[in-house]
Simulated assay, not measured.
Amino acid sequence: MSRTPQEIFQSCVYAGAMTRNADAFAELFTADGVFEAPLMPAGAAFPRRLVGREEIRRTMAAYYERQGKGGRTPNLEKSGYTLHTTADPDVFIAEIDTVFDGDGDRDGGGAGREGGADATVSLVQIFRIRDGKIARLRDYFAPELMD
């Protein structure tokens, strides 16, 4: 059964940003899938490039663990996205504006501002799909957001 770009994107957001479930996130990828954050500098806490479902699973589990239970969670009611299909039916682009509540920075993560205004983080993700799974996900965001 083929999954729509919307279903794939929503599963990705839920497994990653919402629940920080490395197993569920990794299962969205093909066995040889690639997850990239090309703007991340070498040696950053957030991985720049992961190849293969098992490396994605292992590295993201470690990253989510370092974030701890108090990690930032987006406010879905305030956040939004637009999906763009392309001439290639296996490629779609997500244009995302994620809003973190102003009092959501209790862990020092930087996107929310304790006692302050909401913080909006804009990013773009490019998905390449094969057989209903993510073969390549390129995630473009400002690296300082992951400090």
Rank of each mutant, 00 (worst) to 15 (best):
A15W: 02
A15Q: 02
M18L: 14
T19E: 15
T19N: 14
T19L: 14
R20N: 14
N21H: 08
N21W: 11
A22F: 09
D23W: 01
D23S: 10
D23Y: 02
A24H: 07
A24S: 13
A26Y: 10
L28C: 08
F29I: 05
F29C: 06
A31L: 07
G33W: 05
E36K: 11
E36Q: 13
A37K: 05
P38Y: 09
P38N: 09
P38V: 07
L39R: 07
M40C: 03
A42H: 06
A42D: 14
A42I: 07
A42Y: 03
G43T: 04
G43F: 02
A44L: 00
A45V: 11
A45H: 05
F46A: 12
P47M: 02
R48W: 00
R48K: 15
R49F: 01
R49A: 03
L50N: 08
L50I: 09
V51E: 15
V51C: 08
G52Y: 11
E54A: 09
E55N: 15
I56P: 05
I56G: 08
R57G: 08
R57I: 07
T59C: 06
M60K: 05
M60H: 07
A61D: 12
R66I: 00
Q67F: 01
G68M: 05
K69D: 11
K69T: 11
K69W: 00
G70V: 01
G71E: 01
R72S: 10
T73S: 10
T73G: 08
N75R: 11
L76N: 12
L76S: 14
K78P: 13
K78R: 15
K78V: 12
G80P: 02
Y81A: 15
Y81V: 04
T82L: 14
T82Y: 07
H84G: 06
T85Y: 05
T86W: 09
T86H: 08
T86R: 10
D88E: 11
D90M: 10
D90A: 15
V91D: 01
V91K: 11
V91G: 01
F92I: 04
I93G: 00
I93R: 01
A94T: 03
E95H: 13
E95M: 03
I96K: 02
I96D: 06
D97M: 02
T98W: 11
V99W: 03
F100S: 00
F100L: 04
F100E: 00
F100Q: 00
G102N: 04
D103E: 13
D103H: 12
